[in-house]
Amino acid sequence: MSADIAAQDAARRQIWIDRGERYGLLIAWLIVIAAFGLAKPGIFLSWANFSTIFGSQAVLVVMTLGLIIPLTAGDYDLSIAGNLTLSSMTIAVLNVYFGWPIFAAALMALAVGLAIGAVNAFLVLFFRINSLIVTLGMGTFLHGITLWISNSNTISGIDFAIANVVIVTRLFGIPLAFYYALLIAAIIWYVFTFTAAGQRLLFVGRGREVARLSGIRVDQVRAATFLVSGLLGGFAGILSVGSLGAADPNSGLSYLLPAFAAAFLGATTITPGRFNPIGSVIAVYFLVTGITGLSILGISTFVQDLFYGGALVIAVCLSQLVRGRQERLS
């Protein structure tokens, strides 16, 4: 009898621990909002502030989503920042210098992204090279091409229609870019959760040999992840051009660390221990909320680095703890 009660208590405790893990980041986000809200209630808690937070980080969200797909399969795509930069520069060069319609230039950016994904997949899978090294080299190579085609210049004067459909037009006061990012996250969530392709991807990530022996075409799955990652890199490039109204050959590269921080932080929540799109979106906005709050309080920008870097390290530690606990339980 007492053994049953103890078992029930343990089960109840376990449920609370699971919930804590699952929604920990969400709770942390709310605490951060509450803390900054208390410090600067009139400003931080205004809708203008939140619409700005949501509307201005779509590029980072899409890039993070692009990262988590190969990460789920156990691969890295470090070239995604170079992909973003080259794709945005492609739009600028084609639209401003060659007079292409903006829609056609944007399609070409997606094609460039997809092609980058295909080359990454070929190099990783055909030559059996670690994705970390291939995509690191690819990122640098793409930066070289970007500097080349732009003559190292920032190009402005891009057709304003792209800004109109990215940040100027709003729904509930939030620029459309936010909704594009949410839509992509929803699609990935659906694929990860409800489709066979999503389950295969997860198996591949958890153990390639086991997946292969189970009849999954591992190389095909891994190639698909690079293609999707490339496509999302290209889409992030479109959003970047739409947000800035210009393309510059360097700035996209600085998104890489924040995107990785968000991907790993996102893996600690919603589906703890797995890279997941909803967790990633929450993680981006958790980080951005922190940085915005620190900016509003007038705290130096080095503290923002402490926040980003610290969040990444803590996230990886938490993720590791969760994974270790799950492995012990299983």
């Binding site: 600067k40 400003i43 203008a48 700035s251 940085i291 900016s295 920008t301």
Partner: peptide
């Protein structure tokens, strides 16, 4: 005065300006 180092221009200028405008 807000200091933003060159590698951080792309990621820090926009949020800092947004925050300043709202604040």
């Amino acid at each position: 005065i807000v200091n933003v180092s060159i590698p951080d221009w792309a990621s820090k200028i926009q949020p800092n300006v947004q925050s300043a405008v709202i604040a």
